[in-house]
Design a protein around this nucleic acid. Structure first.
Lengths: 202, 202
DNA sequence: TTCATTTAGTACCACTCGGTATTTTAATTT
DNA sequence: AAATTAAAATACCGAGTGGTACTAAATGAA
């Protein structure tokens, strides 16, 4: 999946590595708070000139949207696939907890889910990014809902609760976990909280 | 509690209204995201010159700390007093939910708890403010813990859960509620989530 | 009146921000 | 070789940031 679509046309050959810039930007937005990270800093970290970055992503909004799409593909999609598989409900729930509380190893800085972080600062982001956030949110809720519905038919989810609300509740608790991790709360603590919060679903 | 401590000494009489500035600043930090609100804007909104503000609060850090202290006195303290009273556990829990999900009426902009908002952006704030946040956090957890302990001796809290962890769990769920409200989630939804999350405590 | 004291506010500082006009450079086509 | 095309980067733009010299003004004390 090389994003430098094969197009050896005419002029000066392109040296800007789109994937590399996206990697750096994703990592940066992830670790630092989105609102406190400038384009200048991303240029500095990725070794790209500012006009180069603007040529590739139009503006800050475009970069953020691209980062968000990349995050969806690389991080969120595997989880959604897991939910789509035929793993028993309780096991899938455990997987979800493991995923949510697994700190991305490298570095000491705080973490959590980039999507949720961006969703929290939604108001201050560009329109394209906002639209992408809204899309991902809706999509995520649909995944959760379908998962719960399937689990109900399989008899693995028997609590008296609408699938719609169950999805909202799961989303809320995962968001909470992300926020706490970002704040620096110990992953084991977050895990225990999630376990208790999800115990109402069994 | 007039903060203009009676000191009619010598020089030019002070016209700066500390309480008014704090009111404006608290409101501003509360509604807008803290990180996106400048000192200049606060000066503009409160009708105070910048040097005037610096004379009163030293710097941005000092202002934020002062705002946080004011927020504790005006908003948090009443809740803590309620927890210290002899209200039955379940009733106190309901009060807590009502408090957490009551949007502060005026205006359409997002809300939530200012303390929790500041705690989430803790890393990017000044040292004084950070210290105040840490103090309030610790204090809050102690309140929750004592409340649970008292409820245990009264036989109103019988779940097998350490008071320490219960306090952490309650704090986490309230934080979650605040974050969701700030994001724009409907208060009724947030309330329902809190009800479910707290149902494990009964 | 004169002087010390304290506050008020204008006008500035260096710096960073998102974004761009402009020119240079490296390739292909004619 | 010359013309064309596209990407490179320097150097800039106006606006906004946190913070501060500095001067004017208002009071009580001498």
């Amino acid at each position: 999946m090389n994003s430098n679509t094969v197009k050896p046309v005419r002029g000066r050959p392109k040296t800007l590595d789109r994937d590399h810039v996206l990697d750096v930007a994703m990592d940066s937005y992830w670790k630092d708070n989105i609102g406190n990270l400038s384009l200048n800093e991303i240029c500095r970290r990725s070794g790209v000139s500012k006009p180069g970055l603007y040529r590739e992503f139009s503006n800050e909004d475009g970069l953020m949207k691209a980062v968000l799409i990349r995050y969806q593909e690389q991080v969120l999609e595997p989880v959604q696939q897991m939910l789509n598989s035929d793993v028993p409900f309780k096991e899938a729930l455990d997987n979800l907890i493991s995923f949510a509380t697994s700190v991305s190893c490298h570095d000491e800085s705080p973490n959590g889910c980039l999507f949720i972080k961006m969703r929290e600062s939604r108001v201050h982001l560009g329109k394209e990014t906002q639209a992408q956030i809204d899309f991902l949110e809706k999509q995520g809720l649909v995944f959760f809902k379908k998962w719960v519905e399937r689990s109900k038919t399989k008899g693995e989810f028997s609590v008296d609760m609408s699938s719609e609300f169950a999805a909202t509740y799961i989303d809320a608790q995962l968001s909470n976990a992300s926020t706490q991790l970002a704040r620096g709360v110990a992953p084991e603590t977050v895990k225990k909280i999630l376990l208790v919060a999800f115990s109402v679903l069994e």
